[in-house]
Design a protein around this nucleic acid. Structure first.
Lengths: 102, 102
DNA sequence: CTCATAATTAGTCATTTAGCTAAATGTGGA
DNA sequence: TCCACATTTAGCTAAATGACTAATTATGAG
């Protein structure tokens, strides 16, 4: 979970995820959306891979990155859930309910 | 937003937030839940303050930290929303809701 | 006023991060 | 085979992070 939040803490990486949200994209195509060098972008991709937020599919000369939406969901919604659901709490927390504080 | 995610990327800080979820707590009381030195914890508090996730209220010798739940909500739900709602889009926080942000 | 307590600041250190250029790797096409 | 393209790795630097101890500030109690 820490790695997911760490990955999300950089605006470039958040933007990469948003681009991938529209569909899989090659490393080069992703790079075209930014002004950083390709090695710098490659390092950002590696952080996203490390957090398991993307999947890299190698096809020919290119590497196609895919967003792993379910991992993002699980991390964010899981964290939100540990806060009693935050805004969207479907059930009002009972006062006697045991609180799991990990 | 980057600062919120950065703050959340450390497990100690996430745990601090969860402790504060149960109610305001002094710096010292928070420290008692961890084995780190007080200055180290103070630095973590500073990161949370910087991200605007907590409010520090000075009362006498103590400093009482309060969770700013609405900021956490806005960052997480706002980001989730930018992803088309992910799993299930919760209601966006109403602008007219009287939110007490301390 | 003086002392003890609560918390932060100052200063240090090792590690990580984010950026770069240059070099290496791998793959498809001529 | 050889070349060009796509991407990553290697190696570097500057800045940020997270931890510590020691020192400082601020406040309430005696």
């Amino acid at each position: 979970m820490s790695q997911v939040f760490k990955a999300l803490s950089d605006p470039t990486r958040r933007r990469v995820l948003q681009l991938l949200q529209k569909g899989p994209m090659s490393a080069g195509a992703l790079c075209d959306h930014f002004e950083f060098s390709k090695p710098t972008m490659s390092a950002h991709f590696a952080v996203l891979k490390e957090a398991d937020l993307v999947h890299a599919e190698k096809t020919g000369k290119s590497v196609i990155y895919h967003l792993k939406l379910s991992v993002l969901e699980e991390a964010l919604l899981g964290f939100i859930h540990s806060f009693g659901g935050l805004a969207e709490a479907p059930e009002p927390p009972s006062k006697t309910e045991p609180e799991i504080v990990r």
